Amino acid sequence: MRKKILIVMFVFIMLLHSTVSSALGFKYIQIFDPKQDRVVKVVQLNDEIHNMVVSSIKDVDSLYPKSKPLTDDGYAIKVPIYPAVRVEGKCLNSLVDNIFIIIPQHEAPFFMVFEDDNKQLCFPFKGNVNDLSKLLDFKLRS
């Protein structure tokens, strides 16, 4: 229970405090490990990762089926979307500037998005975790 509270607090802190960018305007992806309770890797956002995540969120057609999606294992990945993308679909109508990809160890991965009014929505991640893992140069599944 303590870890779940820490994860929720971490997500809100990440939401409230944007990643410090260098003068060149670089954006960074953060990979958080709830078991270690810290960011374990920071990766510079590139076009390939950006396009993969944006195309996945635009293809959302259903909500994540679990009522309590947070987990004590796996990884949480914060991906800044720059420039922000307007998503208008069946389940999401919002301007998206950050996406959280949650990859539990033994369950299906999912997106977590906060709408304009800070309402949290979760959607199944239909992208390939292995491809994402290669792009991030980080093993997301064992």
Rank of each mutant, 00 (worst) to 15 (best):
S56Q: 13
H17I: 13
V60N: 12
K119I: 15
N98S: 13
D116H: 09
K27Q: 10
V11S: 07
E88I: 08
Q36I: 05
Q30D: 11
F111P: 01
F123S: 02
V113I: 15
P109E: 06
I102L: 14
E107K: 10
K68N: 13
R2E: 15
L121W: 03
P109T: 11
D61P: 00
V87N: 00
F114Q: 06
R2V: 12
K126R: 14
I5P: 01
P124Y: 05
V42T: 14
S55F: 01
I81S: 07
Y82A: 10
N118M: 14
A76Y: 13
Q44C: 07
E48Y: 01
D117A: 15
I57H: 02
L95N: 06
D72N: 14
Q105I: 11
V85Y: 00
N128S: 13
Y28W: 15
K27C: 04
K41C: 08
L45Q: 10
K3T: 15
F26R: 12
Y82F: 07
K126A: 08
V40A: 10
F114R: 10
P65F: 04
Y82N: 12
L135W: 01
F123D: 01
I49W: 00
P65K: 12
S56Y: 02
D116C: 06
A23G: 07
K78F: 03
G127Y: 03
P83A: 03
S18K: 12
F111S: 01
I102C: 09
V113G: 01
R86L: 12
V39I: 15
E115G: 09
K90G: 03
I102M: 15
K68D: 13
D33S: 13
K58H: 04
D137W: 00
Y82H: 11
F12G: 08
P69Q: 00
E107N: 07
L63H: 06
R2H: 10
T19I: 12
V8Q: 11
F125H: 01
L63W: 08
N130V: 15
P80I: 01
N98Y: 13
I49P: 00
L24G: 10
S22C: 14
Q30R: 14
L135N: 02
I57Q: 03
V8N: 12
P124M: 05
I102W: 10
L45K: 03
L63M: 13
E107D: 11
E107A: 10
G127M: 11
F111K: 03
P83K: 03
R2P: 03
E48A: 12
F10G: 07
I103S: 00
F110V: 02
L121I: 12
I29Q: 02
P104H: 02
K66F: 10
